[in-house]
Nucleic acid binder design. Structure first.
Lengths: 217, 217
DNA sequence: AATATTTTTTAGACCTCCCTAAAAAATGTA
DNA sequence: TACATTTTTTAGGGAGGTCTAAAAAATATT
């Protein structure tokens, strides 16, 4: 049996190792989990005994395929629940994260298969992130940060990186949803800010924002 | 903050005090919670400090109105989720209990209000039990055990007492759902068994079963 | 290379919830 | 009423998860 806390650690380890490639450090994990390094050391010992990760003292953590499988099943549940909340219960996309953090830990294979079916087997969640299938497989989306595009280039929004509620509310306001076309009208090299056009309207967005909008060519 | 375990204790205390009227004993609670009397003593101390119950040594436990409110909100969630599982995800009524036991602990007022709306503000769950509103109010159903009816009497099934999966599967098989008419054709005083007719078909049912079928005149 | 700084681990402790064993109170019986 | 039985509580301890403080290892600086 795996505990709720262990699932959350595993999810963080999975996400951190995707991002950084290198093995995950104790400190990174402590920050991600909002806890102290000492607590992390305790937990990673347990997770490595259970063979969800491999762990070498003073070096860091690597996720095993067993661990990856479990992390992906939690991520699958999280994204299906988010989709449910937005599509069926009319939540806005900035409201779903917190609740999905709880729902992702419900243990019932049948429930999640039925939910998937009920939602029409969606491939991405409301933020544009891919939903793994029951085997943990999903298409790696061809995506890059809007902030890395040259002036004049046009692209389609596919996802939003951060799930911060403030950011999502803002993107909602300017109409920057997955699926929408976005054009880089102007780009300021000094501070990385840019002027973009969405739905024929123009907006100035900061570097921070432009790096959180993921687009495809 | 209230823990998952505390919520479960409170729910049990609520149900036991409904059933027995008297104050709830440590042993009853231990049996209901599948734990030991000593553990119960620990927990009821905590719950009484938090003023969800009053507790007198060697006497027993009484639920406070604060405690009742919380128990009812958990019960509301449980029954709404059961309704969701049956109505939207095509679960059968014998499959829902276990999953609803987990879902009932999800903390989000908004979620449960939206879910209620999505389901069309149902008044009873799939087993015929009333769903409390957000203030904990619900109509106390006029109901009695089928087993207490005289030979020849006709009534309508309103609910099923036990949520045991075996029982529910059996009731499913004979078509004994809430809403259905049922007639006591014959009644055997020796062992309390009876012959009943549902949908024009006749079945022999044991005393145990007849006491778990709740009907209204 | 020696020293200073940062990161990580160990040690010891606390809280929650559970347990077993034994003591205390309540209840039943002769 | 005195004794036996049952119920409940206390005492002490264990597993999961957290923390702070201090030690150990790794890394950076001079």
């Amino acid at each position: 049996m795996i505990s709720l806390t262990e699932e959350n650690y595993l999810k963080s380890i999975y996400h951190l190792s995707k991002a950084g490639m290198e093995s995950v450090t104790t400190n990174d994990l402590a920050e991600a989990m909002n806890t102290k390094a000492a607590s992390v050391t305790d937990m990673i010992k347990k997770l490595s005994i259970k063979e969800f990760i491999t762990y070498e003292k003073y070096y860091g953590v690597n996720i095993t395929s067993k661990g990856k499988g479990l992390a992906l099943s939690v991520i699958r549940k999280h994204r299906l629940w988010e989709t449910f909340l937005v599509k069926k219960l009319d939540f806005t996309w900035d409201e779903v994260h917190e609740v999905a953090e709880q729902l992702e830990h419900i243990q019932s294979v049948r429930l999640i298969e039925k939910l998937d079916e009920f939602l029409g087997f969606p491939k991405v969640d409301p933020h544009g992130d891919p939903i793994p299938d029951s085997n943990g497989k999903f298409k790696v989306p061809q995506q890059m940060a809007l902030g890395s595009l040259k002036q004049g280039s046009e692209s389609i929004i596919v996802a939003v990186k951060d799930s911060d509620s403030q950011l999502l509310k803002y993107l909602d306001k300017i109409g920057a949803h997955p699926g929408k076309k976005i054009k880089v009208v102007d780009r300021e090299e000094y501070d990385g800010s840019m002027e973009v056009s969405i739905n024929g309207q123009r907006f100035f967005i900061s570097k921070e924002v432009s790096e959180n909008i993921l687009v495809t060519a």
